[in-house]
């Protein structure tokens, strides 16, 4: 259960990892060390050729993973092993086209069979109800995004068609580490919490342990993607780097 996994962690940090970078074996090892280091849940990103919600780092990660020969079949063939070897619930993040191409229902049920627990779609259509029910019927949590621009009525509608946790987007913009984050996120999170019992996790732009610490004072969890992937891509030993960076984010000293 994603909801429980977040609520029972004292410090719920959710790392994002682009699948297949530099290869799927490495992705599997990265998941393991992140899990051991205390990740509350782990987002696995399916690379896409045209990631319009992503900044330069995750664009580059996506592109490199595709160049390295990523395929959805190969990912699916690993998922079962991965989900069996980590405690943290696995969440798939994918643009909608790769899932549509394969067949939405079919893909949802395969993901569930392989032990995936949740799904994030950054380019959901305006009316997401059908996708929400399809996810629910497959036993997957559909984690929805609430943006700083989302009007209150729409926030309520989105959250009513959401499970697992609510993903509060901290900034107007695309993914990517930022040195400072807007103060409004505090109010945005408390607004959302006023009408839902689901945990509310904040993401986009998180880049250091202080931000994580600060955000955990009002949010139930924090999602970290670009900053982590940027470090992983630069590192000679990506698995070790992932572990070090995550431990640093959690606020412990480097090991």
């Amino acid at each position: 259960m994603i909801t429980e996994a977040i609520l029972t962690k004292e410090k719920a940090v959710i790392p994002y990892v682009t699948a297949g970078l530099p290869d799927l074996d490495t992705t599997g090892e990265i998941l393991k060390v992140l899990d051991e280091a205390g990740a509350a849940a782990i987002e696995i990103g399916i690379p896409f050729s045209d990631p319009m919600a992503d900044g330069p780092v995750l664009q580059k990660a996506s592109y490199a993973a595709l160049q390295a020969g990523f395929s959805l079949d190969r990912l699916l063939s690993r998922l079962e092993k991965w989900s069996g070897s980590v405690r943290a619930p696995l969440i798939i993040m994918s643009y909608i086209n790769p899932i549509m191409r394969r067949g939405i229902k079919e893909t949802f049920s395969i993901l569930r069979e392989k032990g995936v627990q949740g799904l994030i779609l950054p380019d959901m259509p305006l009316d997401g109800y059908e996708l929400f029910t399809m996810c629910r019927d497959s036993g997957l949590d559909l984690i929805r995004l609430v943006a700083p621009t989302t009007p209150l009525e729409r926030q309520k509608e989105v959250v009513s068609q959401c499970s697992g946790f609510v993903y509060a987007v901290t900034v107007k913009g695309v993914t990517g580490a930022r040195s400072s984050l807007p103060a409004e996120i505090r109010r945005q999170v408390s607004d959302i919490k006023s009408f839902t019992d689901l945990p509310v996790c904040a993401g986009f732009g998180v880049s250091n342990a202080d931000q994580v610490k600060d955000m955990l004072t009002f949010a139930d969890g924090v999602i970290v993607g670009s900053w982590l992937m940027g470090r992983i891509m630069e590192a000679e030993k990506p698995v070790m780097a992932a572990r070090q960076m995550f431990v640093e984010l959690m606020g412990s000293k480097r090991i």
Binding site: M52, A53, I96, P122, D123, M124, P125, L126, R144, L145, V146, A147, P148, T149, T150, P151, R154, V158, V169, K172, G173, V174
Partner: peptide, 19 residues
């Protein structure tokens, strides 16, 4: 919003109010 089964709005949540 759609032309038959084509069209629609598949965008980051941030953009819906602007659209």
């Amino acid at each position: 919003v759609y032309f038959g089964e084509f069209g629609g709005q598949y965008v980051p949540e941030t953009l819906f109010p602007a659209l």
